[in-house]
Design a binder for these strands. Sequence first.
DNA 1: CTAGGGTTAG
Length: 501
Amino acid sequence: MMNRIAFIKLRGNFTTKSFLLHSETPFSSFHIGLHSDTRNVSSNRSLFDKITNLNDALNLFDEMSHRHPLPSVVKFTQLLNVVTKMKHFTYALNLFKQMCSLGVPLDKYTLSIAIKCCCQLHRTKDGFALLGCCFRRAISPNVYIYNALLDGLVLEDKILEAEMLFKKLIKQKLCEPSVVTYSTMIKGLCKFGNNVTALALLRLMEQKNCKPDIVTYNTIIDSLCKDKMMDDAFKLFKEMVFEKGILPNVITYTSLIRGLCNLGRWDEASKLLKEMEDENISPNVQTFTVLVDAFCKEGKVEEAEAVINIMVERGKAPDLVTYSSLIDGYCLRREMFKAREIFDSMTLRGLVPNVVTYSSLLNGYCKNLNIEKAEQMFREMSGKGLKPDVVTYNTMIQGFFQVGRCVDAHKLFDEMYAQGQIPNECTYRIVLEGLCKNRQVEEALSLFHLVGDSKLNSDIAMYNILINGAGKYGKVDIAKNLFHDLIDKGLQPDVHIKSPT
DNA sequence: CTAGGGTTAG
């Protein structure tokens, strides 16, 4: 549980930072039509059902926008929805902007889709700007719009703002929260490891006569499983099935099986797998991948391979995630030849390795101190048009430090910036650790001070690295200063620090 | 014409 919270905290910091980079609000300047259009509500769905790719949708939009008279807002919104369903949120927003300039009279449907797009693009701020447009245009926002905004805040890890919005909805009666509203808020709480409040909210919604459904239960059950609280997870599972009469689905079972596997409770996991099959719920690729991953993390690649064979027999093709887990498994066992073989076999199966796949193998090479092979992978992925992400850079930088190539590590650290990848807390940890390991404690210290006021400077883990690094090479003064520094900041020294004497 | 849940890398 601690790990999850630490992880989220870490991610939260940097999403906030990167969000500030695009905080311009492009919608405030838009003209939004005033008329409400009630013509032509009868839908011609078949027209839009046929659109299966982005280009067709964009072409149709273009054609529609040249018609005289313009098609109704309903037609435009249907098309907008098609693009959104394809998850092309940026394109959908562009279409929305075009609708604005064409003077198509927008309604709450159009706006709810546009708001959803902003939120899914981590631009919830723009979503709220559009909410303002709703108010100005006397379009009263409904529960769909608030759900989209709430989800956006959760997505950006702005849990406090999400809670504030949620409470505001209820207190000011802005809309009647639906089961989706509650479930979204519950998801946010779970994401921050706050299962207790999530459960309290489950009870609250029941009190308010809003019936939790399979999604609500799955969200909490999954969170409990992630926190290894299997007893609570099964208690909730039983409540859902026997008290509420809600049938579990493949997602419910997959969460439970993952929880058991991660605790090494293989027998119970296999029992559950059998149980779900008895209930006629077939495990899917994700269910099997959970098993593969769990086996691999314990170095049991033979078992993982057996699961993959079963998958294939049942016509469930292992995907990128499955193979990435298997590659990790072989890397862990230092069987790099085998890892490479899996990697190559993926291509033969028509799977295109992505950044994660490359990073897995690259990580394997680094951990096995075959830095040249890792560099080769790094170059190869760039050659294939895959942009290394923060994790890739972190892995490679750590690899360089491990073999004492500090200059290359430094170069890559700079390149990371140049490529627009913002270093995260892991990056700094790796760099600080790397510098200390390579007897460059002073440099680590100056980097630490350079980063300045960020959370980093009040992170006990960073102090641990520096103090231990300084202590190891007899730089007692530095260690002492750091120790006093952290006490001054009110940080609690933990067991990982050897108090300098 | 609108909404929510499960899997991967350091």
